[in-house]
Amino acid sequence: MLIAVSLVFIFIRFSGDPAAALAPPDASQEVIDQYTEMLGLDKPLWLQYTNYLKGLIQGEFGYSLHTGRAVEDIFLERLPFTLNLGITAFFISLFCGVPLGFYAALNRGSNLDRVVMGFSVFAFAMPNFLFGLLMILIAALWFNAYLGGEAANVLFPAMTLGLASMGSFARFSRSSLLEVINAPYMYAAEARGILFHRRMLFHALPNAAIPLVTLIGLSLGGLIAGSVVTEQVFAWPGVGQLLVRSVATRDLAMVQFIVLSVSFTMVTANLLVDLLYLFIDPRIRVD
């Protein structure tokens, strides 16, 4: 996380002068200099950096350049939108993707399998930018409905956002179930006369779920960071949009805080995945 924060610190400072971004394009040098001084950008870089780190340790994340408000307040205002979107998308992709994948695995080689896999490739390859726009335009032109904005139904942006991971969930669960179905213990269970539904429910699914947990962790880790494009397209006022605008206006403290939160969620998600592994896979548990 420290590395992430440091990288952001460096990249933002080398990708353009925040003072120049804050001042109008035709501002005079005095104005730019005043902004520079106000933002503390006239201090040497290492001092800015240590000051920033000091602030972090004391729980001071800084203030937005533009509104003067504490960045964590702004962030927390936007977070519910992103969580709402991200979690809905996650459940859509999980609860559509995994059953589709399992279904395809159980009907391997059938036309249905091909349809499902075709769909998952499509879902994975379709840029959600394009898919979202198509959905919005079709709804507008054919149904006179507007799908964007804060008040709109979360379902549509969530579908857009979840589409790609739905595709990967489907593919992944298909292949992991296929692998499990052909495992020796499945064969052995059949030879012991265990009925089909029991074999699936108690033997295949738990084993097939293990590799999926990693994917789940990745999806959850990307919850905050993943929705940037979708939020732009659907005018969904979440963290993703906030990030885009903060980067565009070089709002250093804001960007740094968002990146910090994103890396925090990633780390937390990884930790959760590890714990989950411990829960479902006895082989990992320490005796």
């Binding site: 213990y185 064969y187 030879a191 108690f202 033997h203 084993n207 479902i280």
Partner: peptide, 14 residues
């Protein structure tokens, strides 16, 4: 019927 590798014939999670 029993098979070659017994440890693989048992579901590792149960």
């Amino acid at each position: 019927m029993i098979f070659q590798d017994a440890s693989l014939s048992l579901n590792p999670l149960r």
